[in-house]
Write a protein that binds this DNA or RNA. Structure first.
Lengths: 178, 178
DNA sequence: CGACGCTTGTTATGATATAACCATAACCAC
DNA sequence: GTGGTTATGGTTATATCATAACAAGCGTCG
């Protein structure tokens, strides 16, 4: 168990996760952090204390989380930093590819794919409007088509965003029962 | 005679979704406003003075524009309103479909398609990182595939968006020369 | 006319993000 | 180690994006 987590406090699993309906245990979180650390190491980047703290807050939930929410949660744990510091840590985590930015919500979530890290197949993001959970599914063929569509218009694509809002499997099932 | 190729006239290079960024005549702007007014009329919505003013600022450029930029430009012309009023006008314009929101920039741009306005095929947005111009190209087949990918993950899609950042045709050409 | 609904004004605040400048930490060549 | 170099983070201030709550105006239609 991480020394930064008090087991008695409000835990993050009021929101049901959607990629897998797993309860986020301290052990799983630690594994996720470990993977992130390895990504940083492999790229000769520094996984500093602040970056780890910020990453832990993001990875503690399967939902997306805003920068100021991270700020507040770190503040509750005694780490008080300025917004800009959060954003700098976020930038480093984004660059490393261990988190993603959800453009439609101006929020961030941990990347849980172990395969495609940065240069492989690109994912599209699925964000649940009910529980906030965010999942990724492969979208390489879709990104390819988007690139073709852009080039047909003589447009040179560089960055592409594909995001979907809707209901995750769990919330879909819940809605069908009602 | 095709209307997309006018080799003898001034604007020879006006093709697909990317006309010149800001070489817009008052006449063309007026036509765009007129089309917007018609959309409002057809839907029994009110194209009020404020909404028209906000729309004109958005349609005055082919780039995307932020809410506070609209606020400032209206202010320069003597129309001083509160941010909330701008956002309310924007909401009405979005609802009517005469402008779109660029999620990746938190900004807005005028819809210039005359065809799909109502419930036809959905477009993807192409935003130039150099000059800011935004264009739309049809993306219905892409949205269909995105829906399929979501459903494969047991996710129920409701809202989808596809945005691309890169270089528009003009800026691509300019970059190639350099 | 007057009731109703839509629109806008007014005031205040919340939420997201970055600029500018400086201090410190880590890294590295010598 | 010393000193140069770069990356990181602290501090302060500000820019930008967005909405809540309530009051007032205006359009229209019975």
């Amino acid at each position: 168990m991480s020394e930064t987590q008090a087991p008695s406090k409000a835990d993050a699993n009021q929101r049901s996760p959607f990629p897998n309906p797993d309860q986020q245990t301290a052990k799983k979180l630690a594994q996720t952090v470990e993977r992130a650390a390895k990504v940083f190491a492999d790229k000769s980047l520094r996984f500093t204390k602040l970056r780890q703290q910020v990453f832990e807050e993001i990875a503690a939930t399967h939902a997306s989380i805003g920068a100021y929410e991270i700020l507040a949660r770190l503040g509750e744990k005694g780490t008080r930093v300025a917004p800009i510091s959060i954003y700098r840590a976020i930038d480093a985590l984004l660059d490393a590819g261990v988190i993603h930015r959800l453009e439609s919500k101006n929020a961030f979530f941990a990347c849980r794919r172990t395969d495609h890290t940065v240069k492989g197949r690109r994912p599209i993001f699925l964000s649940c409007e009910k529980c906030g959970a965010v999942g990724e599914v492969d979208g390489q063929h879709i990104f390819d088509l988007i690139g073709e569509a852009a080039k047909e218009a003589k447009f040179t694509p560089r960055i592409k965003f594909v995001e979907v809002q809707g209901l995750c499997p769990r919330c879909t099932t819940a809605a069908e029962k009602a």
